[in-house]
Simulated assay, not measured.
Amino acid sequence: MFTLACLAMAVAFGCSDPKPPLSGLSYTDPTPTQSQWVLKKNPTSTPDHLILDLIPPSDGGAGFGVGLNLTLDASKATFTPVDSSDSELVQCGAYDLGSGTPFLKTAVVEGELMLGIYQKGLSTTPASHDQGRVLSFCLKPLQPLAASVVPLRVKQAKELKSQGMTAINIAVGTLEIK
Rank of each mutant, 00 (worst) to 15 (best):
L4C: 09
D96Y: 08
D130T: 13
L89W: 01
G93A: 08
R133D: 04
L97I: 06
S123I: 09
L89N: 03
S45E: 00
T174I: 12
D86V: 08
G24Q: 12
S123Q: 14
R153T: 12
A167V: 10
G121S: 13
T46N: 08
L135D: 00
V150T: 06
P47R: 06
P141F: 02
V109W: 02
V154Q: 08
T28D: 14
L139E: 03
S84F: 11
K19F: 06
G63N: 10
F137T: 09
Q143R: 13
G24F: 01
P18W: 07
K178Q: 11
A171T: 08
I117K: 00
T101D: 07
G60D: 03
S87K: 14
M1P: 06
N69Q: 15
L122M: 13
A157M: 12
L4N: 09
L7Q: 11
F79H: 06
T71I: 08
G24V: 12
I51R: 02
T3R: 11
G60V: 05
G24P: 04
G173W: 10
F2K: 10
S162R: 15
V90P: 01
I177L: 11
A77G: 06
V66H: 00
T78Q: 15
T101E: 11
I117F: 02
C6F: 07
P102V: 05
S16T: 14
T33Y: 06
A62F: 01
H49Q: 09
T125G: 02
L139D: 00
L22K: 09
L54N: 04
F137I: 05
T78M: 15
L139M: 06
G61K: 04
T28E: 13
D53Q: 12
S123R: 11
G61W: 04
P144E: 03
V108P: 04
L160H: 04
C92Q: 08
Q91Y: 01
P47W: 01
D59C: 07
S84E: 15
K161D: 01
F2P: 01
N42T: 09
T106S: 14
Q91K: 15
S16H: 15
V66R: 00
Q34S: 15
M1D: 10
T80D: 08
T31W: 09
P81I: 08
D73I: 09
A146P: 00
T166C: 09
A107Y: 06
P56S: 01
D17F: 13
L97K: 05
L50R: 05
T106N: 08
L160G: 06
A12H: 13
T28H: 14
K105E: 03
Q34I: 12
N169R: 12
K105T: 07
F2S: 10
L54Y: 01
P126K: 07
T124A: 14
A167C: 11
I177M: 09
L22W: 04
K140H: 07
V66K: 00
Y27L: 14
A107Q: 10
Q119V: 05
S45R: 00
V154R: 11
S45K: 04
P30K: 15
E112Y: 04
P43D: 12
T28P: 05
L72W: 03
D86M: 10
K155L: 14
P30T: 15
L52F: 04
L4Y: 11
Y27N: 13
L115R: 07
D29I: 10
M114L: 12
L54K: 00
W37N: 05
L72P: 04
